[in-house]
Amino acid sequence: MRARVLIRPKAGILDPQGVAVERALPALGFGGVANVHVGRLVELDVEDEGQLDDMCRKLLANPLIEDYEIQTVSA
């Protein structure tokens, strides 16, 4: 089973990377951009997808500051 875990800063948490990107885009002429957030993508093959949530809470994300979203990908 191929899985993809998207990890984002929680709403309301300082996200300086998102802010930096949001400010950079207009400088390149891209207008109308708002609410930019920068997170991480973890891709992995797992035998037991039931373990994914536990993996996210214990290691892949820090639930105090990050939200995660698990997507399973068909091969």
Partner: peptide, 16 residues
């Protein structure tokens, strides 16, 4: 903090 021995977390500096 990651080990749960202390409260909170450390985020990137505000100016990166």
């Amino acid at each position: 903090c990651e080990a749960g021995l202390l409260p909170g977390a450390l985020l990137p500096n505000k100016d990166l």
